[in-house]
């Protein structure tokens, strides 16, 4: 018979929900306050990780492996997203010699 891990017995699930929420909020604030495109990108990674924490916590507390498979897919999509996004940032830098996103206002009417 398998044993319940100590952390699941001693830490209520709401603590993981709070941790993930705070990480997500920090990511959102980072996207709002920074103008450096690379740091905005890192804030997005932070938000993706907050979601991963939440999925893994629920999956572990319910001992259901499907949530962890979803985390696996999220990581794969994040890797692809970073590859394309950084290529776009490099291309922007080649064209306007800066990665300040407040200067990217060509589409403004």
């Amino acid at each position: 018979m398998s044993e319940i891990p100590e952390v699941i017995k001693q830490i209520p699930l709401i603590n993981y929900v709070l941790l993930a929420t705070m990480l997500f909020i920090i990511g959102i604030v980072g996207v709002l306050i920074r103008r450096n495109a690379i740091i905005v990108f890192m804030s997005i990674e932070l938000m993706l990780n907050a979601v991963n924490v939440l999925l893994i916590a629920f999956s572990a507390y319910r001992s259901d492996p499907h949530g962890q498979v979803f985390v696996f897919f999220i990581m794969a999509v994040a890797a692809a997203e970073v590859a394309v996004g950084l290529a776009i940032i490099v291309m922007i830098y080649r064209n306007i010699r800066t990665i300040d996103i407040s200067l990217l206002d060509k589409l403004r009417g």
Partner: peptide, 16 residues
């Protein structure tokens, strides 16, 4: 958000 109760009989620690 809270798991209602943990049943040691049906809990599978090998999930991850």
């Amino acid at each position: 958000a809270e798991v209602q109760y943990l049943n040691p009989e049906s809990f599978r620690s090998q999930t991850g």
